[in-house]
Design a protein around this nucleic acid. Structure first.
Length: 414
RNA sequence: GUGGCUGUAGCUCAGUUGGUUAGAGCACCGGUUUGUGGUACCGGGGGUCGGGGGUUCAAGUCCCCUCAGCCACCCCA
């Protein structure tokens, strides 16, 4: 415990920043619904196995980034590092295999024990979409289109580029894996220590190493695209044709691999150059083998995740806060009436503040600081006429309004 | 886990070759005759100079350790 500071990699989200978060989540929620992706949620922790198995024991996430702990019952639990495996688990737990295809949207905090830097935290937040039970390329297309649509609605699409690749189906990957191991084994001495380890465990990931020596060796590696079987080639062609139909531009990136083991066929990332070393804003792909890995029936899936922090950093502006009306009682005898009026206005649907203390001057200052649109002044004069003085805080104009017409008058502001 | 940079009021920073009670702007609080905001003027509160140790007559200012933040590697959102 290091006193009064948040744990490394975590942070408080104050209202101004929260408005950006909400903008992201609400935009995503609305567009997801339009595409038929309904909101759901999973717990933020699961049995460790839920993540360890599908992500791959050798993946960085599982081998060094999970927040795992033993609970009082002796179970190994893990704060979710990502959503897809949890959604897949929910799909099985809830017995949803007979309701395919299913489309889900969810959002919430994720946890990864990583060194924080620009655009990276230990607790971060994601929006996710998952499409289960659609084996067709059309599913990949819809998922990518939805992602691009959300980025557009948030105004960040122009700052991103879509990168695309195909890992092929399981058969293609197996064949390519053997080829790759043979190739890299011949150049073993030129590989970084880390990549030499990857050679036996996950040779595909040597391809996207940033190590200069690795890069040189990887450049000469046989390309994955040449080892895709016909079915995989056709599938990928259909995905690209769908994107073309929608006018969604992309760049093929044969080195795009992604860190999790469960991907197959299409993988993609919307990347940016505006977040330092963190290029990925939204990433995902097809994961046809995942449900089976968890012990369920073979069920195809496609989806993506996007970082809410990263998206909100790319947004040009912060959505404005709502502007309240402030009720200002003048004199002690007006306070009870002010309380009643405030309550009535709130019930009428308006955002209204009633200060807790202070003379008129202080209350007016406070109203200004709150960004109030208008002040509702109530003193002896007003009470005598069963009315209130409404002061427009932008123009400074005041008018006397009968109390029974007050909410209607205030509703005209904006 | 590794490396680079940084660490003075709530925020952004200034603090001379180490030398008296550590400053500014913004923010905050109060006031400028008491039923009225935003501007202006006046005043005020607030700092173990990240923490610990050392050198020195004397350290925010030099040295060591430590903690934290930022950025980068790895990998991703």
């Amino acid at each position: 415990m290091q006193g009064l500071q948040p744990v490394r990699g975590t942070r408080d989200i104050l209202p101004e920043n929260m408005r950006r978060f909400r903008q992201v989540v609400e935009t995503a929620r609305e567009l997801c619904e339009r595409y038929g992706y309904l909101e759901m949620a999973t717990p933020i922790f699961e049995f460790t196995e839920v993540f360890a198995r599908p992500l791959g024991e050798t993946s960085d996430v599982v081998s060094k980034e999970m927040y795992s702990f033993t609970d009082r019952g002796g179970e190994s639990l893990t704060l979710r590092p990502e959503a897809t495996a949890a959604v897949a688990r929910a799909f099985l737990s809830e017995g949803l295999m007979h309701e395919l295809p299913l489309k889900f949207f969810c959002h919430g905090p994720m946890f990864r024990y990583d060194r924080p830097q620009k655009g990276r935290w230990r607790q971060f937040h994601q929006i996710n979409v998952e499409l289960l039970g659609a084996a067709q390329p059309l599913g990949d297309v819809e998922i990518i289109a939805l992602g691009g649509h959300i980025l557009e609605a948030l105004g960040v699409r122009p700052r991103t580029a879509l990168e695309l690749n195909s890992l092929g189906d399981a058969e293609s990957r197996r064949a390519y894996r053997d080829v790759l191991i043979a190739y890299f084994s011949d150049h073993r001495d030129k590989l970084s220590e880390e990549s030499q380890e990857r050679l036996t465990r996950n040779p595909l990931r040597i391809l996207d190493s940033k190590n200069e020596g690795d890069k040189r060796v990887a450049a000469g590696a046989p390309p994955l695209s040449e080892y895709l079987n016909q079915a995989s080639v056709d599938f990928f062609a259909a995905v690209r044709a769908g994107l073309d139909t929608l006018g969604i531009g992309y760049a093929l990136n044969p080195k795009l691999v992604r860190g999790l083991d469960y991907y197959s066929h299409t993988i993609f990332e919307f990347t940016t150059e505006d977040l330092g070393a963190q290029a990925t804003v939204m990433g995902g792909g097809r994961y046809d083998g995942l449900i089976e890995l968890l012990g369920g029936p073979a069920t195809p899936g496609v989806g993506w995740a996007a970082g809410i922090e990263r998206l909100s950093m790319l947004m040009a502006s912060t959505p404005p806060a709502s502007r309240p009306f402030v009720v200002v009682p003048i004199g002690a005898q007006a306070e009870a009436k002010a309380l009643a009026v405030t309550h009535a206005l709130r019930q009428a649907g308006l955002r209204v503040e009633l200060g807790f203390s202070g003379n008129v001057k202080k209350r007016m200052k406070r109203a200004d600081k709150l960004g109030a649109r208008a002040a509702v002044l109530m003193g002896e004069d007003e009470l005598a006429q069963n009315a209130a003085t409404v002061r427009d805080l932008e123009s400074g104009k005041q008018e006397l309004i009968p109390l029974d017409a007050l909410s209607e008058r205030l509703a005209q502001f904006r």
